[in-house]
Write a protein that binds this DNA or RNA. Structure first.
Length: 582
RNA sequence: GCGCCCAUAGCUCAGCUGGAUAGAGCAACGGCCUUCUAAGCCGUAGGUCAUACGUUCGAAUCGUAUUGGGCGCACCA
């Protein structure tokens, strides 16, 4: 409908250009759904925009444009209002057309071809596999999965990907943490390092190691701690303490070190995978950082940068001159000990992503990584790819509150609420919905007490309830022996204010999907569904559906059938279920 | 100190990228269940859009400055 109206306006403007009354078409024509029904169904501000250019009275120009439009079956009437808006009132036939459109398209209503033929690589979550996902990761997971669904709905081919940081120092700290817990289980007395992973899950992993291997790798704790410097709380340095423990453990264990690593990563990554799957978040690919190292890609990428003259040695390390691309300082890619940095892996990873040939690459990062954007884009440019192909979406932290107090989240200290705990307490639907209800760049306060104790206040129930109510009406219809024939319904009978309002709200769905998808803003859809539910609940309270006037009843049933379909489609994009009864 | 994000009703947040009288939910107050689920509906009250300039027909939205909050500035990942 909107497209047809837009075409009409363009035609009118083109005719005016042909007559020499205008010089050029505006770059884009805004045609908006009106907020206020007295402003009709759609409104455009083109007269205001154009009048500015050609310095004429916007109201007069609006009138000229309207005159040129002439008659159309689409439009009942047009009005010029305010400073020069053109308001369009759709004819009943054209506004009713949305109903049949929804019914005919069914589950695919809302899909479009905007992204047809374009592929997107969407990387998100990518939490370090050093512990279970906590509620902070949940936001990225829900946001990413929903953006992915939205992009797919508008026609993009999207691959979801999780980058697993299974290499580097943190993995070693994990292994040592597990090993020390294992020693304790074997009967050794020892002091757990300040900087180790404190969570209970480490003990669980140590238990599986013990079950699988017995005390095969038991060493006396005096041997393990021999020559290791003092820990932070003992007046030493906690970083050196853990690093020396790593070296020591590796020496003592030999191949056992790798075996413990296997048990640890499989346990943690397995947990993350099932956690996300249960949350309705699925990935096409789990990309291992270690594979970049095994394939030598990190080294190859650094060599490529070297060849193009972006690398220079200093203080025994190799530096990438990212300042040339606007970074505040150059960055080390290979340390003086010959080991490449995390950044080097990331350069390789992004290069690899680009070489896979996607049209668009999107990374969803926690906002604490924003300082990283410039250098990653620098590496892309330096390797002769287009940095604009890479879009980085930042998700702000969710601050957790319990008992009115802000909780500090730290994987290291083991003090965090896991995503799984949250899902168990508030349910997947509420969690998915709550997470995306806030704009991603908005800081979000997640009050656990509220989410847990007063779940009825969560707007997701309000929407689901609307859907369940519609289902209930149809169950009653069956009980009463009322047959519903969607083909015979006469939509012109829908004349009540509340049903016109609901119908108008339904007609917004497609543009909401489009806008949510292209702006990566799932919250727009969430808010839309809530508004739709409001219109429905209001309608429900005013107009009965199962009534003696058979024709009117059929028309109303058709309207709520379409409404139900939009709920189903919209909720499915959000990853929220549409229960038939509540 | 430098950089990024943010500031809208008592609380939590929208505001369709510059449009018409700034909107929801919760909390508060008053109504609506012998008829399709009251997890609902209808109404009342609540705002100097952090502050000050500027840009123009028009600013919560854009620009500059100030204030206040979050985060980041490693040869960690």
């Amino acid at each position: 409908m909107k497209e047809q109206l837009q075409d009409l306006i363009i035609k009118s403007l083109s005719d005016l250009i042909a007559k020499g009354l205008l010089s050029e078409l505006p770059s884009k024509i805004r045609l908006d759904h009106t907020k206020d029904k007295t402003h009709g169904d759609y409104a455009t501000n083109i007269a205001l925009v154009l009048a500015k250019k050609i310095k004429s009275d916007p109201k007069k120009l609006a009138q000229t444009i309207v005159d040129q439009l002439g008659e159309s079956a689409l439009v009942k009437k047009t009005e010029i209002a305010g400073p020069g808006f053109i308001n369009f009132f759709l004819s009943d036939e054209s506004s009713n057309a949305v109903i049949n459109d929804i019914i005919d398209s069914g589950d695919s209503y809302g899909m479009s071809t905007i992204g047809l033929g374009k592929s997107v690589l969407l990387e998100f979550v990518s939490a370090n596999p050093t512990g279970p996902l906590h509620v902070g990761h949940g936001r990225g997971a829900a946001y990413g999965a929903t953006v992915s669904n939205l992009l797919r709905t508008v026609g993009f081919k999207v691959d979801n990907e999780y980058y697993v940081n299974d290499a580097g120092r943190q993995m070693n700290i994990l292994i040592v943490s597990v090993y020390l817990r294992y020693l304790a289980l074997s009967g050794e007395k020892l002091r757990f390092p300040d900087n180790g992973y404190q969570g209970k899950y480490i003990i669980d992993i140590a238990e599986s190691v013990f079950e699988m291997h017995g005390d095969k790798w038991r060493k006396s704790s005096s041997l393990v701690y021999k020559d290791v410097c003092k820990d932070g709380q003992q007046g030493g340095d906690k970083e050196s303490h853990i690093d020396e423990l790593i070296v020591r453990t590796r020496q003592l264990l030999g191949e056992g070190y790798e075996a413990i690593f296997r048990v640890g990563i499989e346990s943690i990554l397995g947990g993350i995978k099932s956690d996300l799957a249960e949350f309705g978040v699925n990935f096409e690919k789990w990309f291992l950082e270690q594979s970049l190292i095994d394939d030598g890609l990190a080294k190859i990428s650094v060599d490529k940068l070297k060849k193009s003259g972006h690398i220079y040695p200093k203080d025994g390390a190799l530096w990438f001159n990212t300042t040339e691309y606007g970074d505040v300082k150059d960055r080390v890619v290979v340390r003086d000990n010959g080991i490449h940095t995390y950044f080097a892996s990331d350069i390789a990873y992004h290069l690899e992503k680009f070489e896979r040939g996607y049209d668009k690459i999107i990374n969803i990062w926690g906002a604490d990584h924003h300082g990283y954007i410039v250098r990653v884009k620098a590496s892309i440019a330096a390797l002769n790819h287009d940095p604009n192909k890479l879009e980085i979406l930042l998700v702000q932290f969710a601050n957790l509150y319990r008992g009115g107090k802000k909780l500090q989240m730290s994987t290291r200290s083991g003090s965090f609420v896991t995503l799984k705990e949250l899902r168990n307490e508030v349910g997947n639907d509420a969690a998915r919905f709550f997470y995306i209800l806030r704009k991603s760049e908005q800081h979000m306060d997640f009050d656990l007490d509220l989410a847990k104790s007063k779940t009825n206040e969560n707007p997701v129930f309000y929407i689901q309830y609307a859907h369940a109510r519609i289902c209930s009406v149809f169950r009653q219809a069956v009980d009463k022996g009322i047959e519903f024939e969607s083909q015979t319904a006469d939509l012109s009978l829908l004349t009540e204010d509340s049903e016109r309002a609901l119908l108008k709200e339904l007609s917004r769905y497609k543009s909401v999907i489009e806008s949510s998808a292209l702006q990566y803003e799932p919250h727009q859809l969430a808010y839309y569904l809530r508004d739709l539910a409001t219109h429905f609940h209001s309608y429900y309270n005013i107009c009965p559906f199962l009534i003696d006037d058979k024709k009117l009843s059929q028309a109303r049933l058709l309207l709520i059938t379409a409404t139900k379909q939009v709920f189903v489609n919209g909720l499915s994009i959000l990853g929220v279920s549409a229960p038939e009864s509540m």
